[in-house]
Design a protein around this nucleic acid. Sequence first.
DNA 1: CCGTTAACCTGAGAGC
DNA 2: TGCTCTCAGGTTAACG
Length: 286
Amino acid sequence: MPELPEVEIVKQSLKRAINHKKIRKVIVKNRNLRFKLPVNFEKTLQDKVISNVSRLSKYIIIEFKSGLFCIFHLGMSGTVHIIKKKIDKITNLSFYQYKQVPTRHNHIKFIFSNFKIIYNDPRRFGFFKLFKSLDELNIYFKKIGPEPFSKKFNFFYLYNKIKNKKKNIKNILLDQNIVAGLGNIYVNEILFYCKVDPKKKGSEISKKEIKKIIRYSNIVLKIAIKSGGSSIRDFKNANGDNGSFQKKFKIYGKKGYACPRNNCKGKIIKFFQTNRSSYMCQICQK
DNA sequence: CCGTTAACCTGAGAGC
DNA sequence: TGCTCTCAGGTTAACG
């Protein structure tokens, strides 16, 4: 489900809620995520104080005062929920309040003093990992490519990465070791803006097109973050709010529609590239 | 090294 | 209603 903009949105809302707070207790209902949760997971995190929350690629990184790191990935269907504890003034009873609490697949609960965080993930492709130090963390992320917004993601970098590639540009851009954080929706959208055929080989992409890919990666992702991400099926930020970037999709999920480009008479077609759906206008994407 | 495929899971929606 | 089939925002182990 989540690509860079959605993960960024989750990170922002999560950071506001948990930064500088102490985890009082961790309760695990199901350890069988993408990777089995470490046996010491609950104990390691109990009573730890959070000193920062950040994002790298599609990962959220929680840093603790003690120097420990906990990272997690949402996979395809992971969601994070902040649930505030309210106290009824008449009965003095406390209860948790959330716009819509999921009933199933709540695998992990992080209990704080006046709220709790729930990790929900129906398909269980998400996962958590612990690292004892920054060095360990850096080793884990060593292969990940540059963030699309970073100066490292520039013309020379991308040109050298793709100039000899036989792989199609769509799959190149989905490769997290080339550039971090792009996923199926945003790669489809970016290539439409660039007027580039997703089937084109890396070696066939012109220098002009490389520059466009970099520029539109930045533009599309920035607008998506500003829109709160894309909520197609069930994406919500940690406060339960939907994003709105899905309303701005040009081609994703728009099979059979007319090309949204002015003066283009093309139709949007759908096809598969390595088992993942691709959309394009056959006339203006070359 | 490179590129391709299958596998990991559940649920929603389409078609019958 | 209900069955069966396809598809979904991601990653990675295993193979040639």
